[in-house]
């Protein structure tokens, strides 16, 4: 429940931040005909910056969600361990330590496996990875601008070449196979 509250609270604060950020730029009263004005590039850059900022906040939110779930499970495990073994073991006794260790491992294993098998956790992980990937994409976009300014192919253009090359390799393999088949059939005809 605590996790949900944090998330809701975070979403609210995030929206407030975005609104106040947008309000600042509205106050500047940039003309609507900015396509033909020097503000055009500025607006594009500002959009990228805004995206990065929004993404950072989202990423932060997904880390919180992830950490809350892990910490709650940890606390739950500690509580369960205490209920199963209320007193700390005698650290001088090897047998007692071993027994305690085994109980602890069982308890933690059980709780964390349940967590890892839960939908909530896998969604949290997926969001975390997805937001992290978006950082890479935004950085890539920024680099694409540099590449463009140097008259070099950008990533999507290189990707197109790589994809085409892979398709060509497949085609060559299929053509070779068909050629082998035709040649072996011809051989059989000659032999007959």
């Amino acid at each position: 429940m605590w996790g949900m509250t944090v998330e809701q609270d975070f979403n609210k604060k995030y929206q407030e931040l975005i609104n106040s950020y947008n309000a600042i730029w509205k106050d500047f009263k940039i003309p609507n005909f900015n396509m033909f004005s020097p503000y055009f590039q500025f607006e594009q850059d500002q959009k990228q910056f805004q995206d990065l900022f929004a993404l950072f906040l989202k990423f932060h939110g997904s880390i919180i969600n992830y950490m809350v779930q892990v910490n709650q499970t940890y606390l739950k495990s500690i509580k369960e361990l205490q209920s199963k073994h209320p007193e700390l073991p005698n650290f001088q006794s090897e047998d007692e330590m071993k027994k305690y260790k085994n109980i602890a491992i069982d308890v933690f294993e059980d709780s964390f496996t349940k967590l890892f098998q839960s939908n909530e956790f896998s969604i949290a992980v997926s969001e975390l990875l997805s937001n992290y990937s978006s950082f890479g994409k935004l950085l890539g976009n920024a680099f694409n601008d540099y590449l463009k300014s140097m008259n070099l192919p950008n990533r999507s253009e290189i990707d197109t070449i790589l994809r085409d090359m892979q398709e060509l390799k497949r085609d060559v393999h299929r053509l070779r196979k068909n050629l082998d088949l035709i040649m072996s059939e011809e051989k059989e005809v000659v032999l007959k």
């Binding site: 939908n119 896998s122 992980v125 997926s126 990875l129 990937s133 978006s134 950082f135 994409k137």
Partner: peptide, 14 residues
């Protein structure tokens, strides 16, 4: 469980 929820397109794109 992880695989079912992974946004694999987005991650691989990056």
């Amino acid at each position: 469980n992880f695989a079912r929820h992974l946004d694999v397109e987005k991650i691989m794109e990056s």
